[in-house]
Amino acid sequence: MITAVLSLTLLGVALGLMLGVADRFFAVAVNPVIAQVEGLMPGSQCGQCGFPGCSAAAAAIVGGAAPVTACGPGGKTLAAALAAKLGVSLDLNAVVDSGPKQARVAEEICIGCCRCGSACTSDAILGASKQIHSVLTEVCNGCGNCVERCPTEALKLQPVPVTLTHWVWPKPVAA
């Protein structure tokens, strides 16, 4: 009985020491996952998630402070990819993805102040001073920074219009 207690205690102590040594010598200095998560994100630093930039959001998601659905412009695809990477379970049917959005300039209201152009994270707004501005739809990523800056509310985010080539069959309704 004494031998049993002694041997188990010794075993426990030995294993504990090994774990401590390993933690000291094999510790990972920087979490590489954060960099990988940031790589998956759109990278436009739009701030829609509430964090100051994509790297901060990546750190928060990896740390668990933010859900994998935090990135709006990333949508369902990004949420699914992050869930797969981080091993988080995600019910894709519950993720609300209203689809990609684009900004559009209401040309009657635009006064040509140029404030939106400097705010655009992907240089999608064309226009010179006192000229009507226009959004390059192929480049706009729907982050919404320009909408906040426009003093006359000429910019609005709209869903990308569905064309014949991009139309998708609806999923059959299930009970």
Binding site: P42, G43, S44, Q45, P73, T77, T121, S122, N141
Partner: peptide, 14 residues
Amino acid sequence: RIKLRQQHGKRLAT
């Protein structure tokens, strides 16, 4: 298509 758009957008932002 969305993924390609996002990659393109990322390149532009960088």
